[in-house]
Design a binder for these strands. Structure first.
Length: 863
RNA sequence: GCCGAAGUGGUGGAAUUGGUAGACACGCUAGACUUAGGAUCUAGUACCGUGAGGUGUGGAGGUUCAAGUCCUCUCUUCGGUACCA
């Protein structure tokens, strides 16, 4: 056998063996405790990138570790296969999205297999197969029947020249990314899921997910955004119309000096009609409809609006206040109307200054006065009520309740709750998605397809470039349908497809029973396997995907196919893998390796132009900065690649990718390899030491203690917070100790302790570098796969220390240290510290004010 | 804008959660050795200073015997922002 470590042969050999022995296949086993480990499935974009390698390496460590701990581990993999990039690629390559997608899946599956992950490939799912999405269509019908899915009008980004709907990502500075023309908002009938019905439940349970990172539940809570407040009615002057507003500050209604309606608010057109202002209002609404409608864009525009020409009446002061339409009022939040109180809201204040509207103070600080005319910013804190009639003098928080009660008694308002969360719009005017199983009939309205007619299979021959919205809309044979309710032969099939987030909202449950054909989920299988014990994926999914999945689990429970309502018991959010790039005016983002240092500073290696300092950006296909792991795999093999990914940083941290240091991981494995090769005969001849630490001394004792310490450290790092980087460095330290020992003459006891250390070390390493570990395990004479071995257990006795090192500080600064028996009392330690020569030098003749002794750590002398 | 994070040597990171800042690696420097390899081994490596010593965890304050860790303010970067997945 080769004396050097050559990964290629080793890895191929073990992958083949695992495959032949079917070691990763799992079945329900009621006698065994289950562990469901899931990593977020990838979108088949073409190639695995380092983000995937990192994510799946993390998961594989946990899966293999849990298996060694005796759990029945479910560890599946699949493909989030519907989506926009497939359509874009198909258009660019004049190909078909399915062809592109399946080819990518094949490539990526090969790459994952090459990395040696412990997946049960028999459970592989691709969401674009009718066997998968038929159950999604089935669920849609159940949801429709229960009123959980409904249709309403809402807006999409529309590019007139391209005659197509654009995703937010495809809109750049209000313009189409292809043709550059201005995008406008177009109103369409679309399907929505009533996620807001579950807002309260989703919110409450955020506090009952102890296995989730707090930052994620915090983000979800803020996203759901529950506000307790009041609804108040403002009558429109000379009209029977009422403008209803939601406010969290009913205490400030006396200070409301104008009203703002969202540009889409139905009253905007109605109230301005036939007035002098009509044209200006129309122009404003038109202008807004040409802007990006994403909330990030809306919030970044400068606040502006126009007067509608009408006034409404403040229900408390009876004052006439002007009605505006403004770009910061959102139709989706509250009632789409904002009562503006410039004295106590900064946004309203800015708007009032811009349009010269009055500022009336109604809440003032305890100890000072405010003047609306001279204020420079809004006062949003609590205080005492003023200018508020009978409520003057009250604490404003008390006034909130009293004013709401007063409005309610006059029938002008009520207490209410508002959520920031909006219903989930799932209609997409795209081809590559699951068809919505609905039929539109002139006499019956929207009617679901009969369940026995499912799946509604996505036709293969749609024209992706056909103008006018959904590609399926142009397929006459697909579109034509008979009404399932009345038999009308002229009904029309819904030609939109579902948001791809729908597929990823329930795939985790389907892995329990991927081939089940009697229903969406096999009740027995989901009862055994669900919930997912550990879910692992990128932080970028902290809100949407994870919230939708929590929602869908509740829906599946209410529909009766699941018994639980939280899908993921523990969650690990992995930091993103980014790539530092450098911007060249000619070549866009380039890699640092393409930069050449010259006397004039850094220049682009491709064109010689000077380049901007590097910036870290998210890896994405569109930015062409994806790091391809193939090169690493060719050069170092799977184990080194995996080891380095895990060693480079703790999983939750973002990682700015750099290959620097991969050599170190390879060298470490080679070092372990050599260690075993160099001591082959000693290892062969001995059994692992099974005695206690008491009969050991010197270096042997040290190694024994270090081994047990390492077992404890690695186990803790995996169990507690997945800090694999420190787990690996602990094993490296152990190997360093073994190396110094292995150069010495060995006796029988040493050989046995050495063998114990080597075996423990290989077992600890096996989840990280499984091929390497299998090979070494076999070299040590074992015939069973290392996966079937038990995880090592440390002994506390081995960790007891006789001595301890105490640090001496003078005024908090390190001045010396000494070693003393571990059972010394505080007084002994203190005296020993004060006698220290170095310390005496620092104390000189200054009086000692205080001496602090910290158990087993340090003495601080304050002078 | 809003919500959530993160800032520690030349680099990735560590620090028993308020108690020795820089573990483990990468890189670099010097040396040794050899069957010249993807070598390996030994020593050194935060900064300033010849030295005693001093300074150091994005920045500015504060609490404490003691702060990378706690508090206040601030800067920068990253993620999400509902049709990218």
């Amino acid at each position: 056998m080769d004396e050097r470590y050559v990964p290629e042969a080793v890895e191929a050999k073990w992958q083949k063996k695992w495959d032949e022995d079917g070691v990763f296949k799992v079945n329900m086993d009621p006698g065994k405790e289950k562990y469901y480990l899931l990593e977020m499935f990838p979108y088949p974009s073409g190639n695995i990138h380092m983000g995937h390698v990192r994510n799946y390496s993390i998961g594989d460590v946990v899966a293999r570790y849990k298996k060694m701990r005796g759990f029945n581990v479910l560890h599946p993999m699949g493909w989030d296969a519907f989506g926009m990039p497939a359509e874009n690629a198909a258009i660019a390559n004049k190909s078909h999205p399915a062809k592109w997608t399946y080819a990518n899946i094949d490539t990526m599956r090969q790459q994952l297999k090459r990395l040696g992950f412990s997946y049960d490939w028999d459970r592989e799912i691709a969401t674009c197969t009718p066997d998968y999405y038929r159950w999604e269509q089935w669920l849609f019908i159940k949801m429709f029947e229960r009123g959980m899915a409904y249709r309403k009008e809402s807006f999409v980004n529309w590019c007139e020249p391209c005659q197509t709907v654009l995703a937010n990502e495809q809109v750049e500075n209000d313009c189409c990314w292809r043709c550059g023309n201005n995008v406008r908002q177009k109103k369409l009938h679309q399907w929505f899921f009533r996620i807001t019905d579950y807002a309260e439940d989703l919110l409450v349970h955020c506090d009952q997910l102890p296995g989730w990172p707090e930052k994620v539940t915090t983000m979800q809570k803020n996203w759901i955004g529950k506000s307790i407040g009041s609804e108040a009615c403002f009558a429109v002057e000379n009209s029977d119309k009422i403008i209803s507003v939601f406010t969290t500050r009913p205490d400030t209604i006396f200070g409301a000096t104008f009203m703002c309606l969202a540009p889409e608010h139905p009253l905007v057109e109605e109230l301005s009609k036939g007035r002098l202002e009509e044209a200006a209002v129309k122009a404003f609404v038109e202008k807004i409809s040409m802007q990006d409608r994403s909330s990030k864009a809306i919030e970044s525009y400068e606040k502006e609006g126009v007067f509608l020409g009408v006034y409404c009446i403040n229900p408390l002061t009876s004052a006439r206040i002007p009605v505006y339409t403004a770009n910061f009022a959102l139709m989706e939040y509250g009632t789409g109307a904002v009562m503006s109180v410039p004295a106590h809201d900064q946004r309203d204040f800015d708007f009032a200054k811009k349009y010269d509207l009055p500022v009336i103070v109604v809440v003032k600080p305890m100890d000072s006065d405010l003047d609306g005319a001279t204020m420079t910013c809004a006062y949003a804190d609590s205080g005492v009520m003023v200018n508020s009639g009978q409520f003057d003098g009250l604490d404003n928080r008390e006034a909130m309740l009293k004013i709401t009660d007063y409005l309610q008694s006059k029938n002008l308002g009520r207490r209410t709750v508002s959520f920031r969360l909006r219903d989930w719009g799932i209609s997409r005017q795209r081809y590559w998605g699951a068809p919505i199983p609905m039929i539109h009939c002139d006499s019956c309205g929207a009617v679901p397809v009969k369940v026995e007619d499912l799946p509604i299979v996505l036709p293969e021959d749609a024209d992706l470039l056909a103008s006018g919205g959904s590609p399926l809309n142009h397929l006459d044979y697909f579109k034509r349908a008979t009404c399932p309710s009345c038999g009308n032969p002229d009904a029309r099939r819904d030609t939109d497809t579902m948001d791809t987030f729908v597929e990823s909202s329930w795939y985790y449950a389907r892995y329990c029973c991927p081939d089940y054909d009697k229903g969406m989920l096999d009740p027995e299988a989901v009862k055994y396997w669900m919930p997912v014990d550990q879910y692992i994926g990128g932080v970028e999914h902290a809100i949407l995907h994870l919230l939708y999945s929590r929602y869908f689990t509740r829906v599946m429970k209410d529909v009766g196919v699941l018994e639980i309502k939280e899908p993921f018991k523990r969650l690990l959010t992995q930091g993103m893998v980014n790539k530092a790039t450098i911007k060249c005016s000619e070549h866009g983002f380039i890699f640092p390796t393409d930069v050449v240092d010259t006397d004039q500073g850094p220049t682009c290696g491709l064109c010689g132009l000077p380049v901007e300092i590097g910036r870290v950006i998210k890896m994405s296909k569109s930015k062409k900065n994806v790091v391809d792991p193939n090169e690493l795999l060719d050069r170092y093999g799977a184990d080194t690649t995996r080891l380095f990914c895990l060693f480079a940083a703790p999983p939750e941290k973002g990682l700015d990718w750099s290959d620097e240091g991969v050599d170190g991981s390879f060298r470490f494995l080679s070092r372990v390899w050599r260690l075993i090769k160099a001591n082959e005969s000693a290892l062969e001849a001995s059994k692992p030491y099974d005695g206690s630490i008491d009969s050991l001394e010197g270096k042997t004792r040290e190694l024994f203690a270090k081994t047990h310490f390492t077992i404890k450290k690695v186990t803790g790092d995996i169990e507690d917070d997945f800090h694999f980087n420190t787990a690996i460095s602990a094993v490296m330290e152990l190997v360093n100790v073994m190396h110094t020992l292995s150069y010495e003459d060995m006796d029988e006891v040493r050989d046995r302790v050495f063998r114990l250390s080597v075996e423990s070390m290989v077992l600890l390493l096996s989840p990280f570098v499984p091929h390497f570990a299998e090979e070494v395990w076999a070299m040590l004479g074992h015939t069973k796969s290392i996966l079937c071995e038990a995880w090592p257990v440390h002994s506390e006795d081995a960790l007891v220390q006789n001595d301890m090192v105490i640090v001496i500080q003078v005024n908090g600064k390190l001045r010396g240290k000494f070693t003393i028996a571990a059972d010394s009392d505080d007084e002994t330690i203190k005296q020993r510290a004060l006698e220290d020569e170095l310390v005496k030098k620092f104390i000189e003749d200054k009086p000692i004010r205080k001496v602090i002794v910290v158990k087993k750590k340090l003495v601080n002398i304050v002078i």
